[in-house]
Design a protein around this nucleic acid. Structure first.
Lengths: 338, 338
DNA sequence: CTGTTAGCGCGTTCAG
DNA sequence: CTGAACGCGCTAACAG
């Protein structure tokens, strides 16, 4: 920078002013500086700038992993928003572990990130999680799962309503033995979706039956097999998320169970090839791109806005039932409309 | 830091030494400093450290996007390696645009990243791309696609061989009219896979036929329809990547073409639900996790190694043919083995 | 409108 | 083994 200043015959301060589009600089000196910058291929050092300004023009993204396309898609959308604002993204994964999450947030703070979008892991008793007082002054937006007992901003989907819609769809098709397969891990989304399912069942005078599984295929297979071998096997299944849907489908496939004849199925969260399976899978679709984008915009609105917006804005995004073949709905609908 | 020094009754320098595990510090003073650090909850400022050391303990990852699970999975694996080394990751997307790529690398350089793993976009004539002399001293590992005319390290898969294996599989099953559907975009992987396909066909005395499509479903549908309406429609299709496979499958599905009876299919790159489709899709599988991990390790070996390793290490990872139902192979194999 | 001084928080260098 | 001075590259605050 001092080289540029020398070449342009000004002080470094003036160079800095030009770089920051300071209004009170003569056209002429500005030209000279710009010219010198061009000749020297000068690029300013963002690290020094961050140190001085106490702000890095960087945001952090913290997701459980990138292997799950749900999170990858969200991260992608957030990254796009960041790019629009000329911000960089520091990304890290938590593996859904609250301890790792805490470490990573800390690490990001040490890097001076201006804000964070995070898919929160379940807090442990032993770690303060996101609620660590150290993080109080860091703008954080919670994505997909709100942080209980905090007033961080958050963006989630209508989980309960989505589960109701999915379950109601099955009920409307005449099913009465409907099982809900959900992850056994303690997660906000799983809990709320189970609730929605239960409400729908109870409202219809039916008996809810929640099956908890791990995230392995083997475990799901065993659970599904046991379920179907039970006294009153379900004629329909509601899967609480992406992973569960895939594992259940795999299990049914292995067991030679035919959809939708032997069992109907609705999944929460759409996936790439859902409409190419035979039959195509009916799902409650989450607006992935919108989820990420909204979280990103929420964060930036907090970073930019001078006027104190009240903390704890919670945005709930709507869901959509995509009816395909896995419940035999089309046939039924056609029959009804005749 | 000066607070810690004061509390421990030493100078900041000693604190710094303790933090960096400097060998020549008395056990006792070390204890005092550690104690003070604990009481004050002191966390060192990574930005200041970066400025001073001219190295940020950060690596950059540059991929076309995160929506494609191929790249997401690679990014995930790289991130894991970074975490092992206590490095942070700055991630950005290029949308496969060489201009964006150039800007992003520059931006990362300004942030002082220690190295980069990048899935290179096709270089344009108008921009220097990754070969910009400014980037000369930045360790860069090319992933999935090598950078022509450079001696960056690179990690790729056996693209040509994979295409040969896939095509040969189809040939072995008795097909002679085999089309290769590939992206029309100029990409290293597409080019090499087409070559592999052609070699296999030529070696068998067959006539290669490459169909170029865009990345939209509509375009693929039209192309597939035209292809099948042609004079001598293929009885088998080799798809050059993930996206193509999905679009082709979608198209065939829409057109009511049955696999494997009416047309057999082999795809390059496995995907989540490939084995749940009816029929399950035969693919040449890429070792996603290994690709990312290897690239990460290659980068870190360059960052850590004192001994000058020769530049331009190229690692080629093996592929695997996963035979499933989409070519009717199982039936044939069984027939043969009788 | 422009320059000077000072300091962001750390680590290298050289004395003690 | 420890401390003092200095500077990494930049910009806020104050002069001029």
């Amino acid at each position: 920078m001092s080289d540029v200043a020398k070449l342009a015959g000004v002080s470094t301060m003036t160079v800095s002013r030009v770089l920051n589009h300071h209004p009170r600089v003569t056209q002429e000196t500005q030209q000279r500086v710009l010219h010198a910058i061009g000749r020297l291929q000068y690029k300013r050092n963002e690290v020094a700038r961050s140190l001085r300004k106490q702000s890095s023009r960087q945001i952090g993204i913290l997701v459980p992993n990138l292997s799950d396309s749900f999170f990858a898609e969200c991260a992608h959308a957030i990254g796009l928003v960041a790019k629009q604002h000329s911000y960089s993204v520091v990304l890290s994964t938590t593996d859904d572990d609250a301890k790792v999450e805490h470490e990573e947030v800390r690490r990001m703070m040490q890097r001076n990130v201006d804000g964070l979008v995070v898919v929160p892991a379940m807090p442990l008793k032993s770690t303060p999680g996101l609620l660590d007082p150290d993080f109080q002054h860091l703008p954080i937006v919670a994505l997909d799962r709100p942080i209980e007992g905090s007033n961080f901003d958050s963006v989630v989907v209508q989980n309960k309503r989505g589960a109701r819609i999915g379950t109601d769809h099955l009920i409307a098709l005449g099913h009465s033995q409907i099982a809900c397969v959900s992850l056994e891990r303690q997660m906000y989304t799983m809990r709320v979706r189970q609730q929605g399912y239960k409400e729908a069942m109870l409202a219809a005078g039916l008996k809810p039956e929640v099956i908890l599984v791990g995230d392995s295929l083997a475990g799901s297979l065993a659970a599904i097999r046991a379920m179907l071998d039970g006294e009153s096997p379900p004629t329909a299944i509601f899967c609480a998320n992406n992973l569960v849907t895939r594992n259940v489908l795999h299990s049914l496939y292995r067991l030679g169970i035919k959809l939708p004849e032997q069992v109907a199925l609705v999944g929460f969260d759409d996936f790439e090839t859902a409409d190419m399976l035979t039959p195509a899978i009916t799902v409650v679709r989450q607006p992935l791109e919108s989820l990420g984008r909204t979280a990103g915009e929420l964060l930036f609105s907090r970073l930019t806005d001078d006027n104190e917006t009240p903390a704890g804005r919670h945005i709930v995004l709507p869901l959509e039932l995509i009816v395909r073949g896995s419940c035999g709905a089309r046939a039924v609908v056609r029959a009804e409309s005749k």
